[in-house]
Design a binder for these strands. Structure first.
Length: 903
RNA sequence: GGGCGCGUAGCUCAGUUGGUUCAGAGCGUCCGGUUUACACCCGGAAGGUCACAGGUUCGAGUCCUGUCGCGCCCACCA
């Protein structure tokens, strides 16, 4: 035996060295040649964390589950590839570096574009691998030699190829539309990047005087006699850009006004009243102000009516030169106040209403998004969405939990075009060039930087200044990381990937778009299964976040309790479709399940290694004839556990898988098997019995460690290597086979041993209930002993003595006071306790037991008496019910006799 | 406004096709423990009319309807 093991598991000492060794030995590397040679691949691409990110519990959960699946499939003989990498995260990263510049008293505009981009690169080079190193600390078995970055040259090339192909297909286009604009980030956003947040706002009702009302109008009038029309708005400052007022075409109140005009207050402009189906006559006054340059609906109405918009806001959301002089240069919210004040002053403010509504905010900086008309690049989504929709409908992509499928499909069914240009400096520059020569309007989309304009023969070409949405590179991740557009061995071997594990928040941002891109560019869905994890929350059910300060640092957990404890805790906490709740203020309690379990594993290993000795063990199959009941039992349990864990993992039921492995290890193996065989492991035990026990213990532990390895790779590997199997030294559990037995199921052994377990448990309970001192052994009387128990007792009689402090087992009861119980199968147990117990208490206990039996018996009788039951239930169910009744009746009769005997 | 989900022991949750692994686990609580590893342990216990009300069924945490409470996602009623 090697160095002795410490009584308490110390993860810090083993995790680091083991991980380095795994890496050095190349266990995490995937080889396309082996796939070409016929091995089945199993591939998970990591959802690339932002390059600026530091590990949080969301990653802790996500990446643990990915690694559990990867390790499991690797053990099953698949060529497993867990492909790591990071995302350049356009806005997020740019913001981080901009803040750094601000702290230095400068800005990106001051240092210029080239210097800024250089600065971001040096920041990324310096800190970009932080999160990947952190993933190693939690044990992720990624193929680190394949680490990718969304902004590396190869992936940039893929982005350009995709852009150009879509452009040539007419699926990428440039247009002047209303987009979501973040005035702080100073860029356009996609619809998904504008998060609606419920906001307490107001609805301002404004009066617009008529310029030319027909004489018979029923409109209300201002004090000066002018009739007016009322409109309601949540953004009064936008009225400066109104170019019409709209009413519903069939709204009788306004029918005569269509085509008339109003004098737009504060502006001196006169604008028309138009009719449009979009207007809801029920809402407000039934008249809507129309601001085409600052509202998507208004933009469309104006388009239908052939009316121009007027852009009254600058990119930073201050009022621009199209606004009246009094408002020019004001921030939009200040302008709002002053517009309202001006209306009030002129007697045109009808009323202000409190109004709760959803307001879009920038998902990166939280600023209120301003809808703004501008020239941007878009992807036409419908042609891409349809095949992606079909893929989920026909099952080529499965979602777990299933309910997410509907959300996905609903989004695709209502898809809108994707605004992909960003007015940022950090990202993939749009591969489009414009000719500057007079009269030449050539626009070139190209994967390579072009020379002079080919059309006019020499005009200077200037590249579009904008960059692409970060997600425009992320959506290619499952194939761009494998070498696309080149036809690489990796691509052939590892695409399509198998399972995508990610957070539900990025279902639209990323998952749906990857499916679209995979189908469009590879002709095949990028993965067959999407597993969406739960969200990690605190005990108040709030999402863990930096700003709330309620996060848990996974590295701190690793430091305190080890990676295995972290991994077990999150895996066993991940029920299907459920969130995880953890207490950031009590890591001790939160991670106790994992820490305690790791310690238990350690100590079972320690006990086994100490008691098995170094001599190589045989396989239980070779010793089949000398295996004892306990041996046959634990091997049967092991086989059942292996099947169960496999089944649960196949269905992504992580909690169930962890639970099954846990209960086999702690319940069956540690609590019972180890206790049962302790005497047989002694040096002076019968050699054949000892050999059988050693072989079985080694095999059971071997199997348990294999089952737990995907979840707890470090501790299992550390112990597994020490098991005294012939020729094992130097092998690694990483590449060991996943257990599948198929020869050890043994119903007899299970029935016999569970009867013995029940007996021991019952004696323990009675001893405890009657406060029998630990020191005093009891004798027990058994009558009507069920067959299974009889056989178990014949071979494991000593277990009773050792595990329940039973000094003797007798047959016939000789009366007297004592505790009585009826076991399964009808075995009666009597424990004489004449000098030790309170008789009244026992009578009470027996009485209650009798009542319970009586009511169960009556319920069973009632059911059996029911024609509908005996007539309609399957025969075996009825039969079972009859047996149950017989059983209850026997038990009741014996119990009442017993009670009567007690007096 | 539309869609989805959840309400089971003090807490966090399992319970996969309605009928012996159906009332469970872990943590917490209480009682008792120097037993060939483990007090991060061992043995035992208490605690739930499975949100509420109806319904379907021979039989319902398990299916249906409604009510109450909670949460999430989507949405261009200003």
């Amino acid at each position: 035996m090697a160095e002795p093991l410490s009584p308490q598991y110390e993860p810090g000492a083993i995790e680091g060295p083991l991980f380095r060794e795994w890496e050095e030995r190349g266990y995490f590397r995937a080889d396309p040649a082996r796939v070409a040679a016929g091995r089945k691949p199993y591939v998970i691409v990591i959802p690339p964390p932002n390059v600026t990110a530091v590990l949080h519990m969301g990653h802790g959960l996500n990446n643990t589950l990915q690694d559990v699946l990867t390790r499991w499939q690797r053990m099953r003989g698949r060529e497993a590839l867990y492909l790591p990498g990071t995302d350049h995260a356009g806005i997020a990263t740019q913001n981080v570096v901009e803040r750094m510049l601000a702290a230095e008293g400068t800005s990106r505009h001051e240092i210029g574009r080239d210097a800024f981009v250089e600065r971001v690169w040096s920041f990324v080079d310096e800190t970009g691998s932080t999160i990947l190193e952190q993933l190693k600390a939690i044990g992720c078995s990624c193929d680190w030699s394949r680490t990718r970055f969304t902004l590396e040259p190869a992936l940039s090339h893929a982005v350009r190829v995709v852009f150009v192909r879509l452009y040539e297909k007419g699926l990428v286009y440039r247009g002047n539309y209303i987009i979501n604009w973040c005035p702080r980030c100073m860029t356009a956003l996609s619809d998904e990047e504008a998060e609606g947040r419920e906001t307490n706002g107001h609805l301002w009702h404004l009066r617009y005087p008529m310029a030319d009302a027909p004489g018979d109008t029923t409109l209300p009038k201002l004090p000066d006699g002018r009739p007016y029309i009322t409109v309601a708005t949540t953004r009064p400052e936008t009225m400066l850009g109104d170019t019409a007022v709209a009413v519903h075409p069939s709204d009788e109140r306004y029918a005569s006004l269509i085509g008339a005009s109003v004098d737009l207050p504060l502006t001196g402009r006169r604008i028309p009243i138009i009719a449009d189906e979009y207007v809801d006559p029920e809402f407000g006054s039934g008249a809507v102000k129309v601001t085409p340059a600052h509202d998507p609906n208004d933009f469309e109405m104006a388009g239908r009516a052939g009316i121009d918009g007027l852009d009254v806001m600058a990119p930073d959301a201050t009022m621009n030169e199209n606004s009246p002089a009094a408002f020019r240069g004001l921030d939009r919210f200040e302008a709002r106040k002053q517009v309202v004040a001006a209306f009030e002053e002129q007697g045109l403010l009808e009323r202000i209403e409190d109004y709760v509504h959803t307001v879009p905010h920038c998902y990166r900086c939280g600023t209120v998004v301003e809808p703004r008309q501008s020239e941007q690049w878009f992807v036409k989504m419908k042609p891409l969405a349809e095949p992606a929709l079909a893929a989920s409908r026909d099952g080529r992509v499965r979602f777990t939990p299933e309910r997410h499928r509907k959300v996905y499909e609903n989004w695709l069914e209502n898809i809108r075009d994707w605004c992909i240009s960003r007015q940022l400096w950090w990202g993939h520059r749009i591969p489009v060039w414009y000719c500057q020569a007079d009269g030449c309007n050539e626009v070139i989309a190209s994967t390579e930087d072009p020379g002079p304009c080919p059309k006019c023969g020499g005009g200077d070409l200037v590249q579009d200044p904008d960059v692409l949405d970060t997600w425009f590179s992320s959506w290619l991740w499952p194939f761009s990381t494998l070498g696309w557009p080149d036809e690489t061995d990796d691509l052939r071997a590892f695409y399509p990937t198998n399972t995508l594990v990610t957070a539900p928040e990025i279902l639209f941002f990323w998952v749906a778009r990857m499916i679209m891109a995979g189908i469009e560019f590879m002709g095949e869905v990028p993965f067959s299964d999407v597993y969406l994890t739960g969200t990690v929350r605190d005990l108040q059910h709030r999402k863990m976040s930096k700003s709330l300060g309620n996060g848990i640092d996974p590295l701190e957990v690793v430091e305190l309790f080890g990676a295995d404890a972290l991994r077990y805790t999150v895996t066993s906490g991940q029920g299907l479709g459920t969130d995880l709740y953890m207490d950031p203020s009590n890591l001790e309690e939160t991670f106790a399940p994992g820490r305690n379990f790791a310690n238990k594993i350690w100590n079972v290993g320690r006990f086994a290694l100490l008691n098995m000795g170094d001599e190589a063990v045989a396989s239980p199959a070779e010793l089949r004839d000398t295996l004892e009941l306990a041996d046959r039992w634990i091997l049967s349990r092991l086989e059942a556990a292996a099947e169960n864990v496999t089944k649960q993992l196949e269905a992504f039921r992580f909690h169930e898988a962890a639970d099954a492995a846990y209960h086999f290890f702690w319940g069956d193996l540690a609590d019972w098997y180890v206790e049962l065989i302790k005497p047989r492991l002694r040096e002076d035990a019968d050699p054949a019995s000892r050999a059988a026990a050693r072989a079985t213990l080694a095999t059971a532990l071997d199997g348990a460690l294999r089952l737990l390895h995907p979840i707890m790779p470090f501790i299992t590997e550390a112990l597994w290597r020490r098991l005294p199997f012939e020729g094992r030294s130097g092998e690694s559990l990483i590449i060991a086979e996943w257990p599948a037995y198929g020869e050890w199921r043994n119903e007899d052994a299970e029935a016999q041993l569970s009867a013995l377990i029940e007996l021991i448990g019952t004696v323990r309970t009675l001893r405890s209930e009657y406060n029998v001192p630990v020191a005093s052994a009891v004798e027990i009387h058994l009558t009507n002993v069920a067959g299974g128990l009889a056989r178990a007792l014949a071979v494991e009689a000593r277990a009773l003595e050792r595990l329940a402090r039973v000094s003797a087992v007798r047959g016939q009861t000789n009366g007297g006071a004592g505790a009585h119980a009826v076991l399964r199968g009808g075995t009666e147990l009597f424990v004489p306790l004449a000098d030790l117990i309170d008789l009244d208490r026992e009578r009470d206990r027996l009485g209650k037991e009798l009542d319970r039996l009586e009511s169960q018996l009556q319920a069973t009788y009632t059911r059996l008496a029911s024609e509908s039951f005996t007539g309609r239930a399957p025969a075996e169910v009825v039969q079972r019910e009859r047996e149950k009744a017989e059983n209850f009746k026997d038990q009741r009769d014996r119990l009442s006799a017993k009670l009567a005997a007690l007096g």
